[in-house]
Computed example of a mutant assay.
Amino acid sequence: MTKVLILTSTKRVEKFSDLSGIPKDWVLIFGENLNTDDAVLQAAGDADFIFADAVREISKTVIDNMSNLKLIHSEGVGYNKIDSQSAKEKNIYVCNNTAANSGAVAEQTILLMLSLQRRLLEGDQLVRSGRQIQAKGSFILDGIAELGSCHVGLVGMGSIAIETAKRLKPFGSQLSYFNRSRKNDAENELGLCYLPLEELCKQCDIISLHLPVTPETTGLINAKLLSLMKPSALLINTARGELVVQNDLVAALSAGQIAGAGLDTLYPEPVMPDNPLLNLPENCHYKLLFSPHIGGTTKQAFEKMHKTVWSNILAVSNGERPINIVNGL
């Protein structure tokens, strides 16, 4: 009997998964509320597949004690919470949904850029408090930049950064990027200019992060790089909160080293009230704009991602090789 352990939202599976193609004799174990390794193993230690939320930890303990396990599939793009090396040692596939939500995240990136430039949150509050004319006059005199006048620096040049560049090009923005390797095709197609990271921070009006979390990228945006940015510059992060040293960003915003930041993700998540970025001085509140890590969570993206998960599970159950393997098997 084939068993699938589902360690993500039951409601999301019900809404976005087409289960009509799943064999009737398969057992689906919904384990959203299994909060410890022991609970997981007790409920589904003999499962053949794990379908996991992208931020759900799948530990070595779980992997080593599930003798039937053949595949661990992330619901999203991220898979850094899965012990991929332990899975590889046991010939268990780890797969993700690479590029499935790239367009959706790119849209969120542009939204944060424009919202900060147009001071959307502050303007909304001033209008609601009856100060529309004062706000308009103040914003005009302070200066409102158009996105097309900006030099945008993309840090990382994967699928999301490429989709972001495609959306920025019609605005007329000057586009540069940093990546550990040059992307000649993207340079030619999108008119991108390669810059070393420090030069990117010095020259660009907007820095937008599009990197995975690795030991090399964790804490990449720190006090040193923030100090190189223009006082008028904006930082956008629709990638992962771990990329930014949050206390350094607090210091940079408080001191006016940069003008603002738009963040779709923080660290750790779920975000708690004591996170330093939630406790900026009152005069800095409008320098920071949050969204609740929804960049890649559109209806279309979830339908596409769930379709891939179940297609890969069915493929492996039939002895076939899945797509989007991320652990080198």
Rank of each mutant, 00 (worst) to 15 (best):
G256L: 12
Q257I: 09
Q257V: 08
A259C: 13
A259V: 10
A259W: 11
G260P: 11
G260Y: 14
G260F: 15
A261N: 04
L263F: 05
L263K: 12
L263R: 10
D264F: 11
T265S: 07
L266T: 08
L266G: 05
Y267T: 15
P268A: 07
P268V: 10
P268Q: 05
E269F: 08
E269T: 05
E269Q: 08
P270G: 07
P270M: 05
P273H: 13
P273V: 15
P273D: 12
P273S: 13
D274Q: 11
N275F: 02
N275K: 02
P276M: 14
L277Y: 13
L277E: 02
L278E: 07
N279C: 10
N279G: 06
L280N: 00
L280Y: 00
P281D: 00
P281M: 01
E282L: 00
C284A: 02
C284T: 01
C284I: 00
H285S: 00
Y286F: 13
Y286M: 05
Y286N: 09
K287M: 03
K287Y: 09
K287H: 10
L288E: 01
L289Q: 13
L289N: 14
L289H: 14
F290D: 01
F290V: 02
S291E: 05
P292Q: 15
P292T: 12
P292G: 14
P292F: 13
P292H: 12
H293F: 02
I294A: 05
I294S: 05
I294E: 06
I294M: 04
I294L: 04
G295N: 04
G296D: 15
G296H: 08
G296F: 13
T297W: 07
T297S: 11
T298L: 09
K299P: 02
Q300S: 15
Q300N: 14
Q300R: 15
A301C: 05
A301G: 03
A301D: 02
A301Y: 01
A301I: 03
F302I: 08
F302L: 15
F302M: 14
E303H: 08
K304C: 06
M305A: 15
M305R: 15
M305S: 14
